[in-house]
Design a binder for these strands. Structure first.
Lengths: 158, 158
DNA sequence: CTTCCTGCAAAGGCTTTGCAAAGCT
DNA sequence: AGCTTTGCAAAGCCTTTGCAGGAAG
């Protein structure tokens, strides 16, 4: 069990590998290439922490030449999820959907302070193993999971 | 690790104990008694599985003399949560919020088939223990958690 | 030329909120 | 009386959808 290492920002080559993985999926599905979709993917891969759809749209408005409409971002995100670049996260926050990069990043879960909102990312191999065994014993093939621990952090608990 | 026992429906006395627990909270908070709130609590405590706000509102429309507006149910549910009668659940389903009774019911988590939607409730003492240790090691005081395993059940995986 | 993609605006679905009447204490 | 609670309707918010023009293959 350990603290997940802080998000090691993806360098330009990493982003490029992510785009290639995206292209592999879109080709396989018979989709066309799209500069806008790649711009969204770039923005998502470049983010270091948790982000919302609006965060991405905002990055794109300020950052590059392409300024996708947020409806487009909503349409692209499920593709990025399917391509394994990002994943929904912080589902207990309630206010809107959040994502985080999963591409070339170690799997982790979250410990969340319900008072100040601080988030600790952890990884427990023991829990992962138990989950697998559990699923197996019920005849399930596990594809993903949501595991968020809610409580008060040291600062808020005093 | 085991299958959580099927919800042992609360009998009338159990419901009454639940209402008492609710009254304890409302008194402590200086709230007033309310027949409508208790009707919602009764409906929630009487449900056996997972339910939505609309499910409750519907029960109340058909069941008793009181027919609370759904806005009222939305206002009452957080109080029932705080009183420890119910809890949000199936957060990964996405479509609206679901609740389930926690009062006089063993804690459990969920294994969910993303294809057919079937849900298995399980309890793993080992995982619970690991969670506690984990929170402790990061200086958190745990108050609750969300743990949902997503995958394909035996039927859908063939 | 056929199919996919994008922007825009509108619709949708769930949940919250403002207000006035009604209910507790 | 003074505060909470309720119903109702309206507003809010996030997300999805229909459509028409544009881009890719």
């Amino acid at each position: 069990m350990h603290l997940a290492p802080p998000p090691p920002n993806l360098d330009e080559q990493g982003v490029e590998r992510g785009l290639q993985q995206l292209r592999a999926l879109t080709q396989e599905k018979g989709l066309k290439n799209s500069a806008v979709r790649e711009a969204v993917a770039r923005a998502a891969l470049s983010r270091s922490g948790h982000f919302s759809v609006e965060d991405l749209a905002s990055d794109l408005r300020h950052g590059g030449p392409k300024k996708p409409h947020s409806a487009t971002v909503y349409r692209v995100l499920p593709i990025l999820v399917e391509a394994g670049l990002v994943q929904e996260t912080l589902v207990t926050r309630g206010e809107g959907t959040f994502y985080e990069r999963t591409f070339e990043r170690e799997h982790h879960d979250h410990l969340i302070c319900t008072s100040c909102g601080s988030v600790v990312e952890f990884h427990s191999e023991a829990i992962e193993t138990l989950q697998s065994e559990l699923a197996k014993s019920f005849g399930f093939r596990l594809t993903s999971h949501v595991h968020e621990l809610l409580g008060l952090c040291g600062d808020c608990d005093s």
